[in-house]
Nucleic acid binder design. Structure first.
Length: 468
DNA sequence: TTTTGAGTTGTTCGA
DNA sequence: GTCGAACAACTCAAA
């Protein structure tokens, strides 16, 4: 018996149900089929390194390109495969592809089976008492917690690999050249399964205690930075769940931090459930009355936002961190998203598109659900009057301005008192710090008070729509 | 069926 | 400076 395991965003050997199942049957051929439309620009860099790591870990990984079903059928014929196994995907395109693939394999009289490996719960399992999917996070997560605990992670399978054909990851040309905009990623990240576990252990050992409140501080390191590892499936939510339980058993003081941290896994689950039950989530307002929102159309403002040149230091610092490292702290993600949607009144889809292209952890479910959440059009949405004040947020969560100083070095010499609002600083203070507004750092592209009022006025149209 | 309580992450204003 | 209330109305989930 020889089976084929199709790898996608499950680039790991441990706790990999499809791989484990295949290993028990006999010889295994491992295949990855590259489809460029599955990845944003930054994520391609991660994919390159993660594939390298997986290939090394397995010993052999076949690479193909083009249509996924055609590539698999080709491999099935070439390597005389008896069965094909994979871990499930949950976004509409992946589901459609895999449904077609399963039918094609079975039509050949071969075995095809999919497994659950990327979520704690399959999206169709968690149901409210009416039998439908939850639309509010808290009851959703309560229902998850009330259910059976996630299964224990699977151990390393004993593999008998069938390898024939070179692993040509370089041939996919996933790395940027000329210019190498990913140079700043290298010191920040260690893509791959071992890198994921190393990061997780580092987090547990040094940063986990205090997560509950520290997670809001972009100037501190109380976040896990596991999001890209999770997106690519280098570590599974089940592994994280059980490792956290074990950690808390020995460090009981961290229980609150653990609850909060695991709830973040819950948001990931919830977002995937939302996308599964609403396949048009990436394109369409979940709450259709938001179709009436009077978005502005201002290419110049969008560009200033993307570049981190809005004149609001926290917003600019976040967007520059994103550009330089492929990542942005969660608290700052909310602030920059709120700024795009509410201060600039630009359609959330513009922001989602930029994040998709620049984030290493770009994930269709998380990205779509989160942008809609900030816009107010999504599930469990923020109340319309919640408009983040970028200055106040900076003073609250980066009180010493160290996050600003790191990413907006032209402001570094400003005193703490004004670093979050250079536009309010006395001219002498600006001069002393070598800051010239409109020259070394931009004037604010919108006035906070006016922008806030305009955003709230925009929601009048939504209200009118929803009551009609 | 009806009712009730709740709903990730905030800001502003006035006492 | 601190504190509490107001900021909408609606939908969801469960009793």
């Amino acid at each position: 018996m020889r089976s084929l395991v199709l790898f996608r965003n499950d680039l790991r050997v441990l706790d990999n149900p499809a791989l484990t199942h295949a290993a028990k049957q006999g010889e295994v051929v491992c295949l990855f089929v590259y489809d460029p439309s599955d990845y944003g620009g930054a994520a391609k860099w991660w994919l390159h390194h993660s594939l390298k790591s997986l290939s090394k870990e397995l010993g052999a990984l076949h690479i193909a390109t083009g249509d996924s079903t055609a590539a698999v059928l080709d491999a099935v014929a070439t390597y005389e495969i008896d069965a094909v196994f994979w871990n499930r995907r949950y976004e509409p395109k992946g589901i459609a592809q895999d449904t077609g693939l399963k039918a094609a394999i079975k039509a050949l009289g071969l075995e095809a089976e999919s497994f659950a490996g990327s979520l704690l719960n399959e999206p169709w399992v968690i149901k409210n008492k009416s039998g439908g999917p939850f639309k509010v996070f808290s009851p959703y997560w309560r229902a998850c917690l009330a259910g059976p605990a996630p299964a224990a992670p699977l151990p390393r399978p004993s593999l008998s690999l069938f390898a024939n054909g070179a692993t040509d990851i370089d041939g996919l040309k996933l790395l940027p050249t000329d210019p190498d905009w990913a140079a700043g990623f290298v010191p920040e990240w260690a893509p791959g399964e071992s890198g994921a576990h190393a990061r997780f252990e580092e987090f547990l050992a040094h940063e986990f205690l205090g997560y509950k409140t520290g997670r809001d501080r972009p100037d501190q390191s109380h976040v896990s930075r596991l999001s890209p590892h999770l997106h690519f499936g280098e570590i599974s939510p089940r592994q994280i769940w059980h490792r956290v339980q074990h950690h808390v058993a020995m460090h009981t003081a961290a229980q609150r931090d653990a609850d909060k941290f695991l709830a973040e896994l819950g948001w990931r689950e919830f977002s995937h459930s939302l996308l599964y039950h609403n396949p048009d989530l990436p394109e369409v307002n979940l709450n259709r009355s938001f179709d009436a929102y009077p978005w502005d159309s201002n290419a110049e403002a969008l560009r200033a936002w993307q570049k981190g040149m809005t004149g609001y230091p926290l917003v600019d610092a976040g967007l520059r961190e994103l550009w330089a490292t492929g990542y942005m702290h969660n608290r700052v993600r909310m602030v920059v998203a709120s700024f795009l949607i509410k201060h600039l009144r630009l359609d959330w889809r513009h922001g989602a598109e930029w994040f998709w292209d620049t984030l290493l952890d770009a994930d269709l479910a998380n990205n779509s659900a989160s942008w809609q959440w900030v816009a107010g059009s999504g599930a469990d949405a923020a109340p319309y009057f919640r408009v983040f004040n970028p200055t106040t947020q900076g003073q609250k969560f980066d009180p010493d301005g160290s996050y600003i100083r790191k990413w907006c070095p032209e402001l570094a010499a400003l005193p703490n008192k004004v670093i979050h609002a250079p536009f309010e600083a006395p001219l002498l203070v600006l001069q002393a710090a070598g800051v010239k507004l409109g020259d070394t750092y931009p004037h604010p592209i919108v006035d906070h008070k006016e922008a806030r009022a305009a955003a709230l006025a925009g929601y009048e149209a939504v209200k009118a729509q929803s009551s009609s």
